[in-house]
Amino acid sequence: MSSLKPAAPYPWPEGKASAFCFSVDVDAHSPWMWNNRDNPPALLSHLEQRHFGPRVGLARLARLLESVGIKGSFFVPGAVAEAHPWMLPELVDAGHEVGLHGYFHELVQQVSDAEFSRMLEASIALFEKQVGKKPAGFRSPAWEMTPHMVAEVKRHGFYDSSLMGFDTPYCVDGLTEVPVNWATDDAIFFKFLGGPGVDGWPPVGTDAVLSAWREELTASRKFGTLFILTVHDWISGRGARTLMLEKLLGSVLSDTGIWVATVGEVAAHYEAVTPGRDAVSPEIPETLFNHPAWKGA
């Protein structure tokens, strides 16, 4: 039960004051496939921008992590792994974590419960075929979940990293949740495909984003929270953005009070040390029109 009293600090391992994860949503061309599933246009620009990820950006990000000695968490749609069968094995061989991210980057609001379950099963089968084992984690495309999805992800024994009800690990109906944060996602700052009706604003400069993320890092350290950085292969694999990430990682690694871990390691720590902490229900509130105050009851 919440109150105005400050919660006890989250017990990160080794006496660390906060935690940091480097995660990559390897969307590549899969959102294009989903958005154009009924009538693919004979147009190359958006598709080629997304192909940059597996062709160039992903390797650039992997080399960055190798250069600073960090392991990342790569959430890969099934369609991307299917199109690039080298991807999952090479990431695993390099010591990184791989997790599920839908099959076609299908949007939750546009699929039925049965379709979600079917595509989840297909993703699991593909991962097992390519790397010989079931992944530990799931991250929903566009970071949305439903009660059915929570139940299915829990049934398969995964942790989830899609929601943001806390800034430390928690659980939703028994499902371990490693929370994300829109403020530390590269797409909201840099995503720019071009064309009328596609983009709401021009991309932000790297200096402004680096400053904002360093402020987030300072806040995470002060409040003892989890900083999950989420980048995309086709967005932050571009040169200046990769250099910006190198500077951010320098700030992270210079602070010995920050635990640097994969998302899966954070989930495992939660389940081993603080299981059930900050447990919440996935219950959806009733419609406003059923509320006694609205009905005059």
Results as ranks from 00 to 15, higher is better:
Ala114Lys: 09
Leu249Gln: 06
Gly224Leu: 10
Phe116Glu: 00
Pro41Glu: 11
Met164Tyr: 06
Val172Leu: 15
Gly205His: 02
Glu82Val: 00
Arg221Phe: 03
Val153Asn: 00
Ala42Leu: 13
Thr225Tyr: 07
Ile235Ser: 00
Ile188Glu: 09
Gly239Val: 07
Phe158Tyr: 12
Thr242Asn: 13
Val266Arg: 00
Trp143Gln: 09
Glu215Phe: 13
Ser2Leu: 15
Gly237Tyr: 02
Arg60Glu: 14
His148Asp: 12
Leu245Thr: 08
Ser123Gly: 12
Glu271His: 03
Trp12Ala: 05
Ser73Val: 05
Gln130Glu: 15
Val204Trp: 04
Ala94Cys: 06
Trp259Asp: 03
Lys71Asn: 09
His156Ile: 01
Met244Asp: 10
Ser140Gln: 06
Val273Ala: 12
Thr176Met: 07
Leu175Gln: 03
Tyr270Lys: 05
Gly95Leu: 04
Ser3Gly: 14
Trp86Ala: 11
Leu65Ile: 01
Leu243Asn: 11
Asp167Val: 01
Glu283Tyr: 03
Phe22Pro: 01
Val273Tyr: 04
Glu144Lys: 11
Glu216Gly: 04
Val280Arg: 13
Lys154Gln: 07
Leu175Glu: 03
Gly57Phe: 08
Tyr159Pro: 00
Ala19Ser: 11
Ala293Asp: 11
Glu48Arg: 14
Ser67Asp: 14
Phe20Val: 05
Thr256Glu: 15
Ile258Tyr: 03
Glu283Cys: 12
Phe166Leu: 06
Arg238Pro: 01
Asn36Trp: 10
Glu144Met: 04
Phe20Ser: 07
Thr274Gly: 13
Ala62Cys: 10
Val150Thr: 04
His46Trp: 11
His101Leu: 04
Ala219Asn: 13
Glu271Arg: 15
Glu14Trp: 07
Thr274Val: 14
Val108Phe: 02
Glu215Met: 11
Ala219Arg: 13
Ala212Lys: 10
Pro85Arg: 13
Met119Lys: 10
Glu283Lys: 10
Ala240Met: 11
Gly102Thr: 04
Pro147Gly: 10
Ala17Tyr: 02
Ser73Leu: 09
Thr287Met: 12
Pro202Tyr: 11
Asn36Cys: 09
Ser220Asn: 09
